[in-house]
Lab assay of single mutants.
Amino acid sequence: EVYKVKIKIERVLPNGEKVEEEITIEVEGMSEEELLALARELAAEPGVRIKEIEIEKLPP
């Protein structure tokens, strides 16, 4: 199964400015739980906050 994972994050820059970013990846052969863990890892940097995680199962 192939999933499209869209992660919206908010990053706080050293000057205090907040910037929103969106990361989209396609992943194959992982469960939804593994995808959530991967998304959290991607956003685990200091000053980064996850705003939204969207997981979509793509048709075969």
Rank of each mutant, 00 (worst) to 15 (best):
E1R: 05
E1G: 15
E1N: 10
V2Y: 06
V2M: 15
V2D: 02
V2T: 09
K4W: 06
K4Q: 13
V5W: 03
V5F: 03
K6Y: 08
I7M: 08
I7T: 01
I7G: 00
K8G: 02
K8P: 00
R11A: 01
R11P: 00
R11I: 04
R11S: 02
V12H: 14
V12L: 09
L13Q: 11
L13V: 04
L13C: 04
P14E: 07
N15D: 10
N15F: 05
G16F: 03
G16E: 03
E17N: 14
K18N: 15
K18W: 15
E20T: 05
E21V: 03
E22W: 11
E22V: 15
E22Q: 13
T24L: 12
I25D: 01
I25Q: 03
E26P: 02
E26S: 14
E26K: 15
G29E: 10
G29A: 08
G29I: 07
M30D: 07
M30S: 11
M30Q: 12
S31L: 08
S31K: 09
S31T: 04
S31E: 10
E32S: 08
E32N: 13
E32G: 06
E33C: 05
E33W: 11
E34P: 03
L35A: 13
L35N: 01
L35F: 04
L35M: 14
L35K: 01
L35T: 10
L36K: 08
A37Q: 12
A37M: 13
L38M: 13
L38V: 10
A39R: 02
A39P: 01
A39K: 03
A39G: 03
A39M: 11
R40I: 04
R40Q: 10
E41Y: 10
E41K: 12
L42T: 12
L42R: 06
A43V: 14
A43K: 02
A43T: 14
A43C: 10
A44F: 14
A44G: 11
E45K: 06
E45M: 14
P46V: 07
G47I: 01
R49S: 06
R49I: 10
I50C: 02
K51P: 00
K51G: 02
E52V: 07
E52R: 07
I53C: 02
I53T: 01
E54R: 14
I55L: 09
I55F: 14
E56V: 09
E56H: 15
K57C: 06
K57Q: 06
K57R: 05
K57D: 02
L58M: 14
P60V: 10
